[in-house]
Design a binder for these strands. Structure first.
Length: 644
RNA sequence: GCCGGCGUAGCUCAGCGGUAGAGCAGCGGAUUCGUAAUCCGCAGGUCGUGGGUUCGAUCCCCACCGCCGGCUCCA
């Protein structure tokens, strides 16, 4: 067959042969001088040098992958995980191998052993890994029948591999070898272990075999690998940066929030500084919703258990709910969701088609039971406030409402500087309620809403909730990390369960469609993400303290007081630092508190009736008038205010 | 929930079988000093909780609580 490699040339390869047979020719003709790490097929699959090309087509065009390509890194890391496994097997022959894939930021291998691996083991393993890399062992692929493979791994005592072989549907399986090491693997892999120029083992932890807690626990060793040493150190720097931005650390340092052992795990206390930030967001949120025809609600935190029976939550959501409590012989339930309450608001009276859509919104605090091991700062908690809304509409209104909701999502996210999103549309799962026609309608409405807004999206087939399809948005923060916040879900179930109706133009009862949506998700989580996104340095309009007034000597305090009170009267959040400390000391403190602006006042300013401004970024604007300073503050007050 | 690690002053951390130490913060005093730490002094801890071992436990053992990392991104 004919193989054409983009940018290199065309080659003849006998059927069912691997590309490695063309190694010398490709090397010779390649203008880049460096060999491709692997190749991309037209269907987007990664093809390595080792895998025989099994195609009925007379020709195949391949895109070479070089170290700078993302896919190449996956190949390298897959090999890295084999090297890790080899090292472990050499040091701990009794270890049994699970699986060892490449992942987004590196690779891991799950390994069973009689005792957990320690940090010291990790050091030793890493040394061994580097030894294996230095030997520059070539990788070799072999195809075996399942029987042969089973015999091979039986011999090696690799129980988990035997289990995996049984799960492979094909008749043949492949193994990759390097040196004395062999692993069941479909590839792809690099040519030899020497291609791994930088590698680091990062951590060990327990992980259930196949992620199922009924299965035995293996030890998972995480690592990462690169083609270049610089890339590794850049990655390690990135990890440092992530640590510095950790919202739990910043939350403490900046006095934003606390989670207290004595109060309870996953229960957040907002400290004054954090509470200000939250309030600004909440106020803005409410205003924007009122402008857009939403009606604001407040609903209780508990309700009779029966409500949750009717809603169905007791059946399908029980494991995430706090247990019910008994009071005067009646059972009450802490609310895990707001929707049933909003439904009762809908049901206050007979609704006409003319009233729809009805949009009810609430910053509703809900309580959900999360297993202790998964709690994480503000990102995973047990009590949180959703920026929730439920829209009740007619079928013919569904699409327009969805467009509006998505527009609002984007509007809010942009406000906080999130410009990149990943959008996922989850479609009908195997088990679902409601009729197919409505599902199709909802799915196509979601889809065309996304298209209307020109939002690129991926489809997660079958990942919808049983009561309706949904759109989830993940935002990407400045460090390129994705966070799931927004969600828009169409619901056919609750209107049915609570027998919601409206009277149509035809004077008949009709069932409204319900949309659940949260823009920010939960305020706790969103603020956690925001803290990390901004590294604690909130933009001016969100900063708990916007301006700090610093005096250089006591004699200027009266002047400083006039400046400060003028700013306060304009509504700025100002703190005074009139202590008899050195200026440097005060600046340092304000800087560590990440206050956007400092106003510095000394003799000069007092005499000329001016102020000196120092921004958090270190810019100096000396001896400007207070009005000029105010102008500058106002320009930063609210980037999107009134722009809707 | 499970696995591993951790829990010492408000914070960050040192110590480790002979009942505790630093820096920062706090308090007192001195310093009035122009763009990221002025100096001196003082005070502060039932060493997560409860048991056990020991002449003696912050240190060793057990249980509990909490925190951190991880628990399919399919060979």
């Amino acid at each position: 067959m004919k193989i054409s490699v983009e940018g290199i040339g065309e080659f003849e390869l006998s059927d069912n042969s691997p590309l490695i047979l063309l190694l010398d020719k490709i090397k010779e003709l390649n203008p880049k001088k460096s060999l491709p790490v692997a190749f991309l097929t037209p269907s987007g699959e990664i093809l390595d040098w080792h895998t025989p090309i099994n195609s009925t087509a007379p020709s195949l065009s391949l895109k070479p992958l070089y170290p700078e390509d993302k896919e190449a890194l996956l190949v390298l890391r897959h090999t890295a995980s084999h090297v890790l496994a080899q090292a472990v097997k050499e040091l701990f022959p009794k270890a049994k191998l699970g699986i060892g894939p490449a992942i987004d930021e590196g690779f891991y291998y799950d390994i069973a052993y009689e005792r957990p691996f320690t940090e010291e083991d990790l050091v030793k393993i890493e040394e061994k890994v580097k030894e294996i890399i230095n030997k520059d062992l070539p990788l070799k692929r072999e195809e075996l029948s399942k029987e042969e493979a089973k015999a091979l791994f039986q011999n090696l005592n690799e129980d988990f591999k035997l289990e995996l072989i049984d799960e492979i549907p094909e008749d043949k399986v492949s193994v990759y070898r390097q040196g004395d090491f062999v692993d069941l693997c479909r590839g792809p892999h690099v040519l030899s272990t020497g291609e791994i120029k930088a590698i680091k083992l990062l951590s060990v932890s327990g992980a259930y075999w196949k992620g199922d807690e009924k299965n035995p626990m293996l030890w998972r060793i995480y690592g990462t690998a690169f083609f270049k040493e610089e890339d590794l150190s850049a990655y390690l720097n990135f990890l440092e940066e992530v640590k510095k931005r950790d919202h739990r650390r910043l939350g403490k340092e900046l006095e934003l929030f606390t989670i207290e052992e004595d109060i309870g795990p996953g229960l957040v206390i907002w400290l004054p500084k954090g509470a200000i930030v939250r309030r600004i967001i909440e106020d803005f949120w409410k205003d924007e919703h009122l402008k857009r025809g939403y009606q604001l609600l407040y609903t209780p935190h508990v309700a009779l258990l029966d409500l949750w029976k009717t809603s169905g939550h007791l059946d399908f959501y029980r494991e995430n709910m706090f247990p019910p409590m008994e009071l005067e012989n009646r059972a009450y339930q802490l609310k895990p969701m707001n929707c049933p309450f909003h439904i009762y608001v809908y049901n206050q009276k007979r609704r006409s088609y003319r009233e729809l859509p009805l949009r009810f919104c609430e910053l509703g605090t809900v309580y959900r039971f999360e297993r202790s091991g998964v709690l994480h700062g503000l990102l995973r908690v047990r009590g949180f406030t959703q920026d929730d809304a439920h829209i009740f509409c007619r079928e013919d209104q569904l699409q327009e409402e969805l467009v509006k909701v998505l527009e609002l999502v984007i509007y809010f996210l942009k406000l906080f500087g999130f410009e990149e999103y990943k959008v996922y549309l989850s479609t009908r799962p195997e088990k679902y309620v409601g009729d197919e026609r409505r599902w199709d309608l909802a799915e196509s409405s979601l889809q065309s809403a996304l298209q209307t807004l020109g939002l690129p999206y991926e489809i997660d087939p079958g990942e919808g909730v049983f009561y309706g399809p949904k759109i989830d948005l993940k935002i990407r923060d400045v460090l390129g990390r994705d966070w799931q916040c927004s969600t828009v879900q169409v619901d056919f179930n609750l209107p049915e369960r609570f027998d919601l109706v409206y009277v149509g133009e035809d004077n008949q009862f009709h069932r409204p469609i319900m949309i659940h949506r949260a823009l920010l998700g939960s305020l706790e989580r969103f603020l956690g993400v925001l803290i990390e996104h901004y590294a604690g340095a909130f933009p001016f309009w969100l900063a708990p303290v916007q301006i700090k007034v610093l005096t250089i000597k006591d004699s200027v305090i009266p002047y400083a007081e006039t400046v400060s009170s003028r700013l306060k009267s304009l509504g700025f959040r100002v703190e005074d630092d009139f202590r008899p400390e050195k200026l440097n000391y005060k600046i340092r403190q304000a800087q560590l508190e990440k206050v956007p602006y400092m106003i510095i006042l000394g003799e000069k300013e007092m005499e000329t009736g001016t102020v000196s401004l120092r921004s958090r970024k270190g810019e100096h604007l000396n001896n400007i008038t207070l009005d000029e300073a105010i102008e500058r503050f106002q320009s930063e007050a609210h980037p999107l205010f009134g722009a809707s």
